[in-house]
Amino acid sequence: MDTFHIVRPARKAPINQTLVGYVGSGDLEVMIDNSDSPQADIYIHSSSSAGEQRWLALIERIEANQPLPMMRMDIHDFSATPGVIRLRLEQALEQALTKEASYE
C-alpha cells in the first residue's frame, strides 16, 4: 500500500461533506470534508503501485475543467483503473459542490 499527500491550489467555495464509492476490488472511496487550510489537501491510500505521478496527472486533468475547492479529500483506492478513479473523483466533487447535501 502506498500513501501520498498532494497539495493543490484551491478556490474558496462552500462544500458539503461527501462520500462516494467503496473500498472493493477495482473501486475506491472518495471523501470530501471541510478544511481550515486555504488549499486542497488530498490524502491518498492506494493498494496499487502506480506511483504519485499518476495521481498528480489525474488530478491535473480534473483541474483543467474545474478549479478545486478548498477541502480535505481522502482517497482509499483498491486498485481501481484510471477511468474509474476519474469518474469517482468527479462524482465526489459534483456532490460536494451541489446545494443538496447527501452521500451514499
Binding site: M1, L19, V23, E29, M31, H45, S47, D74, H76
Partner: peptide, 10 residues
C-alpha cells in the same frame, strides 16, 4: 489494516 498494508474504509 494500514499497518498490514491494507487500504481501510471510513
Amino acid at each position: 489494516l494500514e499497518v498490514q498494508g491494507i487500504v481501510p474504509q471510513f
